[in-house]
């Protein structure tokens, strides 16, 4: 009976959310508030069980047990700075919350420099020059196409050069220091936009199909799991 009850409630919530497509209504409001409330409660529990207990409480108790004063002090100072965040609730002392915020923002910005440069810039450019140890501007592949023209050899010959040209023109598109009538900007603008739109189009189609699969999953739940359950138990 419990399974039917919870499954029916899940169906009710699914349909309540979908009812928003018609217009805002009390069912949607109920589902929305329930969803938001549960997500906040869940976040609090997760933060407590997966961050506070294993990252703060247990190491602190261990450090106290083992007499590691430095580590204990480090953890207590961290907790104290974190607690300053709660001062936002007070008008008089809310300025104290700027300390944890500034530490987090400063650390976040600084920490992002090296990984961003490495993963988003240098590694990407490396892959623009070589892929799997082979140059993307591989003359041999172009010669191979002229020797034996076929779709596969055409793909192999053009894949690398097209990718290289794409990276270069799109990179130029994002120069902000030059006027739009600068010849380099002017003549690379359209190809860059073309490259980006082709990429975005592919991403759109791919993501759209992923969303459709989510919808199919919900419908599958209602029609193939919940409805047979109702039929078997109640009819």
């Amino acid at each position: 009976m419990g399974t039917i009850l919870w499954s029916t409630f899940a169906v009710f919530l699914t349909l309540s959310i979908f009812s928003f497509l018609i217009k805002d209504n009390p069912f949607y409001k109920f589902a929305e508030h329930l969803f938001a409330g549960i997500s906040v409660g869940y976040l609090v529990v997760i933060t407590f069980t997966q961050i506070f207990i294993p990252r703060v409480w247990k190491p602190l108790m261990n450090s106290i047990d083992t007499g590691n004063i430095l580590r204990s002090a480090f953890l207590i100072i961290g907790v104290f700075i974190g607690l300053l965040y709660l001062s936002r609730a007070s008008n008089k002392y809310s300025w104290l919350s700027r300390y944890p915020i500034s530490i987090v923002v400063g650390f976040g910005s600084g920490f992002a420099i090296a990984p961003s440069l490495n993963a988003r810039v240098l590694k990407q450019l490396h892959s623009t020059v070589v892929e799997d140890g082979q140059s993307l501007l591989n003359i041999q592949k172009i010669i191979a196409f002229f020797r034996d023209p076929s779709f596969s050899s055409l793909y192999n010959a053009t894949y690398g050069p097209l990718l290289v040209i794409g990276v270069l023109v799109v990179l130029i598109y994002f120069f902000f220091s030059f006027k739009n009538d600068n010849p380099v900007i002017k003549y690379t603008r359209t190809p860059a936009l073309l490259y980006m739109m082709v990429g975005f189009g592919a991403a759109f189609g791919y993501t759209f199909m992923a969303r459709i699969s989510l919808f199919v999953d919900r419908m599958n739940f209602i029609l193939n799991r919940w409805w047979p359950l109702i039929q078997n138990k109640l009819m």
Binding site: A31, F35, A36, S39, Y42, L43
Partner: peptide, 20 residues
Amino acid sequence: YFAAGSQFAFASVAQGAMVR
């Protein structure tokens, strides 16, 4: 303000707020 902690709960709160 803080709308919600999870991704789609946030989306539902935001779209509810926009419609209202």
